[in-house]
Structures are given as structure tokens and as C-alpha cells.
Design a protein around this nucleic acid. Structure first.
Lengths: 110, 110
DNA sequence: ATATCATTCAACTAAATGGTTGAATATACA
DNA sequence: TGTATATTCAACCATTTAGTTGAATGATAT
């Protein structure tokens, strides 16, 4: 497995906050402006803007300007590295569960 | 999608540190004692012990006592919630990519 | 040009994180 | 029982993080 250390640090770091996960959810199927997003939370505009910056640095969202607004959407490759990482462990664990299952079957009447 | 907020906070938080990811990698296929793990890093024993506590709280590893030592291994359900979370986004993004592909095909000669 | 709306930046604060050292606990061994 | 080994706990420090407020920037409309 390749370890994209820097990328994974920021990806998982970004995902560790519930507000940021909620932002991802909201922009997962539609573009929303920074202001629209901010209205959902009991936070200042600036705080939400900071969360967006964290998500942007982690390449989980992208912004594009549309007149006065900045529109936020899920980045095309969002979560790809994180998915790869977790996939690797999933396979590992499945292998271990399979081994356990075989072991249990072989020792069924022990 | 269900949001296991607390669990995801600690899971992703635990995964955001490269030392902790390295620990996970090392115990992914074998049990290692806290001391054996500590030797791999240029950190004090106590610091590694703290990292292990973070991983344990996030239910990514388990410890069992074996005499004087504590043996560390990957938790059976490690990363399950994180995998579910990311899977949800993957499907979302695949759907969006499919839609894009269809759109591009339909407008091939436009 | 200027006023207004949307957003970011800068400076600050409080709390969390990652590290240290040294004392405390748990187990094994003589 | 006393000593050595393995690990954790407690107290502390430096850095990062998540939030605030208020000023600054960018874009549009008048």
C-alpha cells in the first residue's frame, strides 16, 4: 500500500469534524454558496468560511465564483485516497474473518 | 445515511495522525506489544501509549494482557463505520460521474 | 465613484492535541 | 518480600484548532 501521508492527514483531519461532514453532505448533490451554507449553522460566517478552507485544502470541496458569491461543491476526486486506504484494511479484515471462519468450521465439533 | 457522529469524530480523528496509521499498519497482520511498537518510533514510551489510547477509544485496536505485556491488535470491527461513510460518498460520486458520462455521450457531436 | 452584498483576512482567546519527564501501578521472578 | 520489567498516569509545555470580532477585499448595481 502506498501511504499518501500528507493527503491522508488532511483528509481524515477534515472528516473528523461533524460540521465539516455536514457541509460535505449538503454539497454532495448540489452547489451551495458560502452564505447559504453558513445559515445552517449556529456559527459566524467567518467560522464557516474557515471550515470550508479546511475542506478545500483537503481537496474535498471546490469553490467557483458566481458573481458576488462563491459556490461550493464536492470535489471530483473527493475521498478517493481515503477510500483506497480504508479499502486496504477492509480486505485485510475480510481475510482475517475468512481465516477465522475456516478455522471454526474445521474445529466444528471440538 | 445514518451519521454516527461521535464514532466518526473519533475514528477520523484517530486516522488523521501518521504515527497512528503506522501503528494500525503494523498490527494489521500480527499482535505486537506496546513496547515492541514503541521501539519503531522516535518517541517516548508514554507518547506511544497515548497514541494507543486514542486508537483504543476510537475502537480501532484492542489490547489484551499477556503476562507483563499488553498485546495490541486491530479491532475486529475497525474502520467499519468509516468504510460505510466513505462508501456512501463513493456511490454518490459514481452516480454523478455516470450522469456526466451519459451527458457527454448524448452530446458527442455537439 | 460609491454603496452594498458576499466573503476572506487578521488578531485574538480558549480548548484540544502531541509531546515531555517522573512517579505510580501491575505482573513476574528470585 | 523485594526487585526488575512493562505500561500507564499526572503534571506540565508548545503548538494547533475552532471559535470570536472587526477590518479589508471583490463584484455588482446605482
Amino acid at each position: 500500500m502506498v501511504e499518501y501521508t500528507f493527503s491522508l492527514d488532511s483528509t481524515f483531519g477534515a472528516l473528523s469534524d461533524p460540521t465539516r461532514r455536514d457541509i460535505l453532505r449538503r454539497v454532495s448533490d448540489t452547489e451551495l454558496s458560502v452564505g447559504q451554507l453558513a445559515r445552517f449553522y449556529d456559527l459566524t460566517f467567518a467560522a464557516v468560511s474557515k471550515h470550508l478552507k479546511v475542506l478545500e485544502k483537503a481537496a474535498l470541496i471546490v469553490k467557483r465564483r458566481n458573481g458576488k458569491e462563491q459556490l461550493v461543491s464536492l470535489a471530483p476526486q473527493a475521498l478517493a485516497d481515503a477510500a483506497d486506504y480504508i479499502e486496504w484494511y477492509k480486505q485485510f479484515m475480510e481475510a482475517r474473518l475468512d481465516a477465522l471462519e475456516i478455522y471454526l468450521k474445521e474445529n466444528q465439533d471440538g
